[in-house]
Amino acid sequence: MTAPNASPVQSRPLWGAGKTVVLLVGAAILWSYLGTGSNLLLPFQADGRHQVALFFSQLFPPNLSASLLTRALRGSLETLAVSIMGTLLAVLIGFPLGALSAYTVMGNRRFSEAEGSSAVARLWRRLIYDGSTLLLNFLRSVPELFWALIFIVAVGLGPFPGVLALGFHTGGVLGKLYSESLEALDSRPLEALQATGASTLKVFLFGMVPLALPQLLSYTLYRWEVNIRTAAVLGVVGAGGLGQDILVAMGLLHYQDLATFLIATLAIVIAVDFLSTFLRLRLIPS
């Protein structure tokens, strides 16, 4: 069918999808660079160097007086508490919604084709599945900072709106991650459970949860690490903790106090990272 001396290898198209993508991405980067007035060299030029040096010289020495250290400690503990409560609330929101938005839990054809469920039951499942997916999407799309501003209006200043803000946003994130874990499980043990006559709830409790648990724990610990940093930032808008202390110190130009608070933030973030790694090693068998 082909000419005897025609090469079986077709010549490469001169212009393909790959080149278009590279060009578009390049244009987007250039546009963003110009649009943000970025000058990556600025901190290293003579003027920039001087400003950076001045700022750092004002930070030193950090204020280590007993009263300030007590404040820093109180702020750190409050931030830690906000991160723990926020993550706990996120699990309480994310786990049920994540389960309800996993098609392996709510889908009409799970491990078996044979289901025998009525049309009304299938419609209900569909509604619950879509509803919880949508709700998770919404919770996740609103950033923590916006949630914090909303809750500060609703419940007043302090650590509690911080907890609610972390819980709502992270709940949306964890719910999504949980539902993806529940959807990616090995179906064979689950099929075996279903074949014993177990209901979906029992397959979920005795099959899906233990199978997914290592991954669920891992995601939760990772989000806790993220939340300790976010909890510190949330203080800046008035949601308690170290962030609030940092904001006040900057406003009053008390740079040596600021240095202490920054060191405290760093210490607590590193401490949580270590604790999280330790828990991961202890709780999650490789």
């Binding site: 044979a114 039951a121 064979r188 043990p189 099929e191 075996a192 074949a195 006559g197 099959g207 199978l211």
Partner: peptide
């Protein structure tokens, strides 16, 4: 093919299956 969800489960409970492998929950 004509069973409701509940009677399907009751029927499954009366049928036991042993598989080739990989059908236990390893974490339990």
């Amino acid at each position: 093919t004509r069973l409701s969800e509940k009677s399907l489960r009751e029927l499954r409970a009366r049928i036991g299956t042993i598989y080739q492998q990989h059908n236990l929950v390893p974490q339990l």
